[in-house]
Nucleic acid binder design. Structure first.
Lengths: 237, 237
DNA sequence: TGAATAGTGTCTTTGAGACAATATTGC
DNA sequence: GCAATATTGTCTCAAAGACACTATTCA
């Protein structure tokens, strides 16, 4: 056993800062946003559900974004999703080991992709979060607020869909995220204006007792980049 | 002199991460955004112009925001401005001492307040930046982009005005930040809609050869909080 | 009185939502 | 054909911009 030493303090008395990343992995299940949580395997809070995350490894990671992508892949199996920096949380009180910084990231994946990911994942609705360690509850709330806000005027929700989807499917994703109905004609005008979608020629959603819907995919240029609107998708509230 | 040791490495071989904050202090001079820079007094890049910033002190700061506010006051004399987290920049290459994180903040002040601040400040236009150390140029660019973007649908630019201002003055601040003309009638409708301003009864801008303009101030509730719009201030482009 | 700019009224244009008509499928 | 939903056309309403008119000051 090592010699006892105050947690997070170096020998010279200057407190070391703990540098971590946390990932809020979101997806849409049953028309409501869900977040992926994991049982912690280490202290502090060993055994508790928490966001996937961990310490940045200076010898391994080339940036905090890289650290987040590495952590996400290692802990959940999810690889190459939409992954965006959210905000940085810091202070002496958020981690019992001492003064810490967490660079939080937000990842969006399709429900399908999340199902195929690690079975160790606990996927819970964001409006029924269990008690969470650290400030993970606030981090999730910031993520959800950001996603809802950005969805008003951008193509963000397409990352909650799979590779191919119909316009009615995409509209219902927008409606679920925004929590309000959207006019069908306006929605289609907006999607056209965003210019990020292309119909997959000859591909339709079949098997239902109605006119089949055209399948669309993201244009190559928008696979990793958002498309922005001047005006919100749903103007009236 | 201390015993030689590889920069940024602890004795156990795990590289220590350098935790800093940087503040992009912006103001509007001559209708264009300017940023405040300081001559660095320490290595690395001693003597070079750079953003005010420095290492987070775990023993002193209660958060990265606190560290930014402390640094800003100590280095520029500016106290209690609008101060908002921007993003976090990180990696092994941005600081020659080793793997580093910088939590960047954006501060907005009136030109008047900046003039009265420390005379050591070098206030330069953001579109004519000198060569800067670290990744300070990217940080400034992100700040400017964010400010322009937020100004489209919020009250952000009021923090570039003094305590009292006229609507024509505020409009010209918006126009300078957004880089485009705004319809006068629409602008006034929007300011009314934002609901953040109150006329200072009986106070007018006098001394000019025209009808005097009503002076306004921020309502108490909005002294530190933004007010947001559903739609952008300038819809057409 | 005239120049200058503040502040307001109102018409026109643009864009969003309502509604409905048409298109295609499985049964 | 009928039920169901996709897709599109068009009318209505509200918001944004253009323009002009009135208000008030100094020279």
């Amino acid at each position: 056993m090592k010699a006892p030493r105050a947690a997070g303090k170096s020998r010279r008395g200057a407190e070391t800062i703990i540098c971590t990343v946390d990932v809020v992995l979101l997806s849409l299940l049953d028309d409501s946003l869900h977040v992926a949580l994991l049982k912690r395997e280490r202290e502090p809070f060993s055994g508790a559900l928490a966001l996937p995350g961990g310490e940045i490894k200076a010898g391994v990671d080339l940036s905090a974004w890289d650290a987040a992508a590495r952590m996400l892949k290692a802990k959940t199996g999810v690889q190459g999703p939409y992954l965006e920096q959210l905000a940085t949380f810091s202070g002496p009180g958020r981690d019992p080991r001492g003064w810490s910084i967490s660079v939080a990231y937000c990842a969006l994946v399709s429900a399908e992709l999340l199902q195929n990911a690690g079975s160790a994942l606990h996927v819970v609705p964001v409006n029924r979060l269990p008690a969470l360690p650290f400030d993970h509850r606030s981090i999730i709330n910031v993520a959800v607020t950001r996603v809802r806000s950005k969805s008003q005027y951008s193509s963000l929700p397409v990352y909650l869909c799979g590779n191919r989807f119909t316009l009615p499917q995409l509209q219902s994703v927008y409606e679920a995220v925004l929590g309000e109905a959207i006019n069908k004609v306006s929605f289609r005008r907006k999607m056209d204006e965003l210019g990020m979608l292309e119909p997959i020629s000859g591909a339709f959603e079949v098997g239902r007792a109605n006119r089949p819907a055209q399948l669309y995919q993201l244009r190559r240029a928008f696979r990793r980049r958002l498309s922005l609107l001047e005006r919100a998708i749903n103007a009236g509230h």
